[in-house]
Design a protein around this nucleic acid. Structure first.
Length: 267
DNA sequence: CTAAGGACCTGTCGGC
DNA sequence: TGCCGACAGGTCCTTA
């Protein structure tokens, strides 16, 4: 479900409900996620200092460490009354008085981890720059692209190059930059890589403004959908006409993922 | 080091 | 109506 805009939408939604609040309880119903949810009894009585995001990880800070949450493919977080009955696949509640942060994840690719130093955690250490930071630009892409034959779409979806770019926004950004998703990374000149870093920033920023992309089940912390889906140019549009030239959008497998593109507009 | 492929899960949808 | 395969927003790990 979530790429960076959906995770950021979730962060903005939950932060005001958590920051400054004291944890009253922590209920683990289904510990089985990508890794088992650790014991979180030590959170009882602790106060949430803030909610950050790094890549697609949400970081809930306490004074003695950080709760790391990843939503995987199908995870979501809601803020709701503790008394609301849990549904199937509701994995855990972080209770803050009468309300709780509740994690739901049918496919169980998500994760809940505890660390005393978030940025040094093995899952976060070694990640590339944030796509919306100045550190991510055409030169950065060029540095990683040089000499590599891997498809450019794989390169921008590689978290050690740049974080937060998943299948939807990689497809959209490549279309907007006019670059074929299969193109060998090392054979793209700097101006086009600069264009690509710009379109990545643009599409992510715009999607965040629209509350993310709801394809089938992404809902924000209040249960509302995002509105970026109606602005998608290629993702999920195979067989439909390109909005720019009218040719049919095609799809092909790149790095195990379906990739939609316009054969006329992208080279 | 790069690149490719499988693995981990459940739910939904389309075709027969 | 029911069954069965294909497919889905993401990493992580092993193998070559």
């Amino acid at each position: 479900m979530p790429e960076l805009p959906e995770v950021e939408t979730t962060r903005r939604g939950i932060a005001p409900h958590l920051t400054g609040q004291r944890v009253s309880d922590c209920v683990i119903r289904q510990p089985r996620l990508r890794w088992p949810i650790p014991d979180l009894g030590h959170l009882r009585g602790r106060v949430v200092q803030g909610v950050r995001r790094r890549a697609k990880y949400l970081l809930i800070d306490f004074d003695h460490g950080t709760l790391i949450i990843h939503l995987g493919m199908s995870g979501s977080l809601r803020v709701l009354p503790c008394a609301n009955p849990p549904r199937q696949h509701d994995h855990f509640d972080l209770c803050l008085g009468k309300r709780c942060l509740r994690m739901h994840d049918p496919r169980r690719f998500g994760a809940v981890l505890w660390t005393d130093d978030a940025l040094q955690h093995p899952r976060l250490r070694g990640l590339g720059p944030e796509p919306l930071s100045d550190a991510f630009n055409g030169r950065h892409l060029q540095h990683h692209a040089r000499g590599r034959k891997t498809a450019i779409k794989n390169l921008i979806m590689n978290g050690s190059v740049v974080v937060g770019v998943g299948n939807i926004y990689a497809s959209e950004a490549l279309f907007m930059a006019g670059i074929h998703p299969q193109r060998a990374s090392g054979r793209i000149a700097l101006p086009r890589l600069e264009r690509l870093s710009d379109t990545i920033k643009h599409v992510l920023t715009h999607a965040i403004e629209r509350g993310g992309t709801t394809l089938r089940d992404f809902l924000n912390e209040s249960g509302e959908p995002g509105y970026f889906a109606q602005e998608l140019l290629v993702y999920g549009r195979a067989g439909e006409p390109c909005r720019q030239c009218g040719n049919l959008i095609l799809t092909r497998q790149i790095g195990q993922r379906a990739s939609a593109y316009c054969p006329h507009c992208q080279h």
